[in-house]
Design a binder for these strands. Structure first.
Length: 983
RNA sequence: GGGCCGGUAGCUCAGGGGUUAGAGCACACGCUUGAUAAGCGUGGGGUCGAAGGUUCAAAUCCUUCUCGGCCCA
């Protein structure tokens, strides 16, 4: 007899919420709704007066489309702000952009080149206007792309470093530093084009293979405290820039390099290598001086070069081994020593870690004017640049050697073996070799001519000068008070004014770093970094608004004038800095001062955003300092540091209390993305094919504190996770169809399984808050995912399908489950709102079309009292029993004895009588989704399964003893069906 | 070349001296056909980057190497 069709009497989930997400189409609609309703504004109003969480957005560079790094970075920022907001705090998000600087300048110039225009013929103000327009264009593009990502921020009023107000603030911050006397004008070797007479950035330089003249030059050793026998010998240096010899000021050695003292022997003729040993005795060798050179293959190469120059075979006969340390305190003479003056001063030997022995002689000539290593090493030993080479690449007219020489130092003839330098060196007996040498050398991209390193005046912030205007910290503040020994008042006094480096290091110790290794990284950098070079010789940026006294070299400190400068910048921006303005400010004194025309390092711009954005009052919802800065780990050298240094120099502390960093996104195989490799992943494409919520779920699922990957397989996996969440929401919506508050049951009246779900929610609530606390979004997401997949979908929802589908709508059992589903719904929509910003809104508005945005809601109300460890243990036992049972049932199923587990009977005998007691009162058949379970005490562990000998209810499909033969309904369903038909 | 950091299943991640290394997803097989382009179950899958060392015991601590990353040179 065929069963009646009871399907219409079953209460199946009902919802319009589609299984298929269609995010690429749906998301923009939701976004439009938010924009129309001013969700960000609503949120500010809703959270007004609450505890604040001040996040300060680091400015991306306004150049180009959003890439995967931007996407990750902003999703994380958005997640931080949204989770803090969810916790009830007032967490504003003011986005910003970095707008000045060379890359933009470069792009605008590129456009000029395309039109065959010369940048130098365009008025500076016009050029800057074009840079400004270019930056604004990309600000607008990126703003719309970031909004599409679902970033909830103050898009109506972002901050731009090129806002006149911002430019005024940057100037004001610079002048603050200047007024405390904490700027100095020093020098530093920069790439310099003698043709264009300008400094160049790395991006403006290209490398070409050229042939230079390589020379070996002998410097006579005149003092050697650790090895007196070296006096009279000659240190040999090798260089490919002969023109730097007239500016030599020392010799670097490697502290751990082995050197050989050699007697130079010259044969009476040229001997082929092959026959050298056989004819050795027949050669008439003459001694020709003693030389010091690295004791390895470099010695043989030097022999060859000398041989080549002299035309007779040279042999360097080793006669004593030395270590770099033997050269401590040694001094040599410059080959042009006899010229007197600059050339008469002794050339010291200096220990250089950079000295290598793979090329040259193991001894390096030092011209601090023309090399970075040279400059740093000499500076450390008190040797300063001499500025012998002028901007046009010629030696100063008053230079003792080659002064007034008409040729440019990049002129091959000047450097040639028969040129003036080599000739003079030869005449003084110092030239050991001179020949061609091929290598790659930097050239100006514009003129294609060689560039040189040349010291030019630059503005610096000193790292190690005391800052008297910054309060020293007491021992107590430093946390030293309990670290042994009594406090020595004298020591307190000595510690008076901290240096910028010291204060920055103290702040690094104080600030919270997530992950903590960030502290290590920025600490190592700040500890070892040189003074901060503030100046750039460019056009698109904030000028260094200083006047330098032409006589004393001091810069003018005049508060009144400075205030006028800042006020003018507020009106006109960077274009205010003109000679006319200088005259207006200085009046008759204008000729007494040089108006500085350098611009500021853009890192100083961004280092001031804390002042402009947090402190200025332009965004009254913000305040100084920030609770959090969040950027990629590359910003340890960038924004984190420039902000730290700027703020320590002006305010004596960091502008942030915590730093959160993320790693970089690699391709699917863990390699860095690059356009040339063609392995880039475009977030705009992902949003187009998967949707922003998928991209967000990806960003919040990976371990962002490390480098992490993205690729098709990974995104497919993320999309699968998304589908699980979406379907669970769909099921919740369907299960709660027609829910009314009258249905709600008090928590005290609901069954164990329902109370267990509440217990899990209570547990989760605590765990999720802990994850938010440490910004562990990966944990946050996987906790929710685990709950949804394992606890709800695979267990509770599966078990309660029967009640939901088949109980009478008025039945307390069904009402209890729906009560818990309602609570779960509210918890999950809120918890996932910071992650799946679009989907949760869609879910929320499906159930509550008129309730406003899900993103305005607070953390779900979850009673900590729901936490019930005893219940958790009890349900834990059930689930363990379930697992053991299903192992056996699967065998039964494989044998085709049963299909559905609902057909099965389970008999358990156990010696653990306490377990039986613990499970008393639970309907195990219901929880195991089988027909019947018998659990009895015994003297052995046994679990047997079999097909149950019970009839199947045609409505609820359970196998039960009370199924009516005629209607094929169980007792419960019998009571439900007529009621349904009545209704 | 230097500073800092990482490498656990096909994928995303737990575990940070102590049973037989786990979870979710993917995959295979099966059940269900009342979440159905869904749901449930079972299963296979790992030299914990490699090699040494410390220890009664190492994915975990140490050293070296290797691959990869960020920042410098």
């Amino acid at each position: 007899m065929s069963a009646p069709d009871y399907r219409p009497t079953v209460f199946l989930p009902k919802t319009d919420f589609p299984m298929k997400a269609g995010l690429p189409e749906r998301e923009p609609q939701i976004l439009a709704k938010w924009q129309a309703a001013d969700l960000y504004g609503q949120l500010r109003a809703a959270r007004k007066g609450r505890e604040k969480f001040i996040f300060h957005d680091g400015p991306p560079y306004a150049n180009g489309d959003m890439h995967i790094g931007h996407a990750l970075n902003h999703i994380l920022k958005d997640a931080v702000v949204r989770t803090q907001t969810l916790l009830g705090k007032d967490a504003p998000y003011v986005p910003g952009w970095d707008c000045h600087g060379l890359p933009i300048e470069w792009k605008v110039e590129e456009a000029y080149r395309a039109k065959k225009q010369n940048k130098d013929e365009v008025p500076a103000a016009q050029f800057r206007a074009e840079c400004r327009a270019y930056a604004q264009h990309w600000v607008d593009v990126q703003a719309s792309q970031l909004q599409r990502l679902g970033i909830n921020a103050d898009w109506q009023k972002p901050y731009l470093t090129m806002d006149f107000e911002a430019e005024a603030t940057i100037v004001s911050e610079l002048l603050k530093v200047a007024e405390s006397g904490y700027l100095y004008r020093g020098a530093k070797p920069v790439m310099w084009s003698p043709v264009e007479k300008t400094a160049l950035a790395e991006a403006e330089v290209e490398y070409h293979d050229i042939t230079s003249t390589q020379i070996d030059v002998a410097f006579e050793i005149v003092e050697a405290p650790n090895a007196p026998e070296l006096v009279g010998a000659h240190a040999v240096i090798w260089t490919t820039t002969p023109w730097t010899i007239p500016v030599n000021q020392g010799i670097a050695y490697g502290p751990d390099v082995a050197y050989a003292h050699c007697q130079l022997l010259l044969a009476d003729r040229l001997i082929a290598d092959a026959e050298r040993d056989s004819v050795w005795g027949q050669i008439d060798w003459s001694e020709s001086g003693r030389y010091l050179v690295a004791d390895n293959h470099l010695r043989a190469e030097l022999e060859k070069r000398i041989t080549k120059l002299l035309g007779v075979t040279a042999f360097l006969r080793p006669d004593g081994e030395y270590n770099g340390r033997d050269l401590v305190g040694a001094v040599a003479h410059h080959p042009m020593h006899h010229l007197g003056g600059f050339f008469a001063t002794p050339r010291p030997f200096l220990p250089g870690e950079f000295v290598t022995t793979d090329q040259g002689t193991g001894l390096v000539h030092m011209a601090p004017d023309h090399g970075e290593d040279d400059f740093a090493l000499c500076k450390a030993h008190g040797i300063n640049p001499v500025f012998a080479v002028e901007a046009d690449g010629r030696y100063r007219a008053d230079w003792l050697w080659l002064g007034g020489e008409a040729k440019n130092v990049i002129n091959p003839n000047l450097n040639a073996p028969d040129g003036p330098i080599c000739s003079d060196l030869k005449a003084s007996g110092a030239l050991l070799s001179a020949g061609p040498f091929q290598h790659s050398y930097p050239h100006s991209w514009r003129s294609k001519k060689k560039v040189i390193f040349r010291c030019t005046p630059q503005w610096f912030v000193p790292m190690d000068r005391p800052m008297p205007w910054v309060e020293p910290k007491s021992r107590a503040e430093k946390g030293w008070e309990n670290e042994g020994g009594a406090i020595d008042p004298a020591e307190e006094g000595l510690a008076a004014s901290p240096t910028l480096r010291e204060r920055a290091m103290e702040e690094i110790a104080r600030v919270t770093f997530t992950p903590d290794k960030g502290r290590n990284r920025i600490g190592a950098m700040v500890e070892g970094r040189p003074d901060w070079v503030l100046s750039r010789q460019r056009a698109w940026g904030v000028p260094i608004t200083l006047f330098v006294d032409r006589k004393t070299g001091d810069y003018l400190v005049d508060k009144e004038i400075n205030e006028k400068i800042v006020a003018r910048f507020r009106e006109q921006g960077v274009d205010a800095w003109t000679p006319e303005f200088a005259r207006e400010l200085l009046g008759d004194r204008v000729d007494q001062y040089e108006q500085v025309t350098d611009i500021l390092d853009v890192w100083f711009d961004s280092g001031c955003t804390h002042a402009f954005v947090l402190e200025s009052g332009r965004w009254p919802e913000l305040q100084w300092p920030a609770d959090l800065y969040l950027e990629g780990s590359d910003q340890h050298r960038g924004w984190f540091q420039s902000s730290l240094l700027q703020s320590c120099a002006t305010r004596g502390r960091a502008p942030y209390n915590a730093i959160l960093t993320h790693g970089f996104t690699m391709d699917a195989s863990g390699r860095k993305m690059s356009k040339s490799e063609g392995n880039t992943v475009n977030p705009l494409d992902i949003m187009q094919t998967y949707g922003a919520d998928i991209l967000r779920l990806w960003a919040l699922s990976v371990d962002f504190t490390e480098d992490h990957r993205i690729g098709d397989e990974i995104l497919k996996g993320v999309a699968d996770q998304y589908r699980k969440l979406r379907n669970s929401f769909r099921y919740l919506l369907g299960a709660l169809d027609g829910w009314s508050e009258k249905e709600r049951l008090p928590v005290g009246e609901i069954p164990a399984l329902e109370r267990w779900v509440l217990h899990r929610l209570a547990e989760l609530s605590v765990e999720l808050k802990a994850a938010i606390e440490i910004y562990d979004f990966n944990r946050y997401v996987s906790l929710i995912l685990g709950f949804v997949a394992d606890d709800l979908s695979a267990f509770a929802m599966d078990v309660r399908k029967d009640s939901l589908y088949c109980d009478a709508p008025t039945a307390p059992t069904r009402r209890a489950w729906r009560t818990v589903l309602d609570i779960t719904f509210h918890a999950l929509t809120r918890w996932l709102a910071p992650v799946l910003v679009f989907t949760t809104e869609e879910v929320w508005s499906t159930r509550f079309p008129d309730a406003g945005s899900v993103h305005l809601l607070d953390w779900p109300e979850i009673d900590a009292g729901w936490n019930d460890p005893a219940l958790a243990r009890q349900i834990g036992l059930v689930r363990k029993l379930r697992e053991e049972t299903y192992l056996k049932l699967e065998e039964l199923r494989r044998n085709k004895a049963i299909g559905s587990f609902l057909e099965a009977r389970v008999d358990i005998t156990t010696t653990h009588h306490d377990r039986i007691a613990a499970l008393t009162g639970l309907d195990l058949a219901e929880l195991l989704l089988v027909a019947e379970v018998a659990l009895v005490p015994g003297d052995a562990e046994q679990l047997t399964v079999a097909k149950a000998d019970l009839a199947k209810c045609a409505r609820c499909w359970r196998h039960l003893p009370d199924v009516d033969d005629e209607t094929q309904l169980c007792g419960r369903c019998t009571t439900v069906v007529p009621k349904t038909e009545d209704a």
